[in-house]
Amino acid sequence: MAEEVMLIGAKGSPFTRRVETALKMKGVQYEFMEEDVSNKSPLLLKYNPVHKKIPVLLHNGKPICESLVIIEYIDETWKGTPILPEDPYERAKARFWAKFMDDKCLQPLWKSCSSQGEEQEKAKEEACELLKILDNELKDKKFFGGDTIGLADIAANFISHWFLIIQEVTGVEVSTKDKYPKLYEWIDEFVNCSIIKENLHPKEELVAVFRGRLQAATATK
């Protein structure tokens, strides 16, 4: 019996791209359904009634939600390139850094470029401290998990691509190669890995998206 795998997401979303990366690392064939996040479909609301957010993975009709949870599910369900290490301690560390990306890094990084005045200065200060922590964690490693791409690297995809574009669009400089050399070495290794490179959202499209979001945010202030 053929497996049915569908991913409900948005191509410009780093969270959707995380799941696509995991599926491609495992060589899983899947159907992609593009979701309009400003006009949520009945399908999305049906399969993620709690958070009403993308991405959602449907595996033989069963929904799995939240990108990091989905990645672990993919890793446990399909053989092939491992995403989490076998060693329990190393697995715990991978989960720790993946959670760190979501819980600690995402909001300050976004606010460091999108907010204004005192709020922006505070966010920039916080973002710089967080990037310093990540730079230090990479001091003797190629990737967060060691020699190969793993859960924490996939979780950090926002830093490797989206955040650099946001900085360019806003003209705000938070992250530079001089300040975070190991982080930038990681970015170079990560985005030039074949699976990641093929899976990056086109820069020009993200530029247009972020310009629109920033204009909308400014208009409401």
Rank of each mutant, 00 (worst) to 15 (best):
M1V: 11
E4M: 10
V5L: 08
M6C: 11
L7V: 15
V19Q: 09
A22W: 02
V28A: 08
E31H: 11
M33V: 14
E35Y: 06
E35I: 02
E35L: 06
E35D: 07
D36P: 05
S38M: 11
N39K: 14
N39M: 08
K40G: 03
S41G: 07
P42E: 12
L43W: 03
L43V: 14
Y47D: 07
Y47R: 06
Y47V: 15
N48T: 09
N48M: 06
V50G: 05
V50C: 03
V50M: 03
K53W: 00
K53D: 05
I54Y: 09
P55S: 13
L57F: 00
N60C: 09
G61F: 09
G61W: 08
K62I: 13
E66T: 04
S67W: 07
S67C: 14
V69D: 04
I70P: 04
I70H: 06
I71F: 09
E72G: 03
Y73E: 07
E76C: 04
E76V: 03
T77N: 00
W78P: 02
P82C: 03
L84R: 06
P85Q: 01
P85K: 04
D87L: 01
E90I: 00
R91D: 02
R91W: 02
W97K: 02
W97I: 01
A98P: 00
K99H: 07
K99Y: 03
F100G: 06
M101R: 05
M101S: 05
D102K: 03
K104A: 03
K104D: 01
Q107F: 09
Q107S: 12
L109C: 09
W110A: 09
C113T: 14
C113H: 12
Q116W: 10
E118D: 14
E118K: 14
K122G: 06
K124C: 13
E125M: 07
L130C: 08
K132Q: 10
D135T: 08
E137H: 08
E137L: 01
L138D: 12
K142F: 10
K142L: 13
G146R: 10
T148L: 09
T148H: 13
G150A: 07
G150T: 08
L151T: 07
L151N: 08
D153G: 01
I154T: 06
A156G: 13
I159M: 14
I159G: 10
W162Q: 14
W162D: 15
F163N: 11
F163V: 12
L164A: 15
I166Y: 02
I166V: 15
Q167E: 15
Q167G: 13
Q167W: 08
E168K: 15
T170L: 12
T170W: 11
V174E: 06
V174Q: 06
S175Y: 06
K177G: 05
K177C: 10
K177Y: 00
D178T: 02
K179N: 14
K179E: 13
Y184V: 00
W186G: 13
D188M: 00
F190N: 12
V191T: 15
I196E: 02
K197D: 13
N199W: 04
L200A: 08
H201C: 14
P202R: 13
E205C: 02
L206S: 05
V207A: 11
R211I: 01
G212C: 04
Q215Y: 04
A216C: 05
A216P: 01
A219Q: 11
T220Q: 08
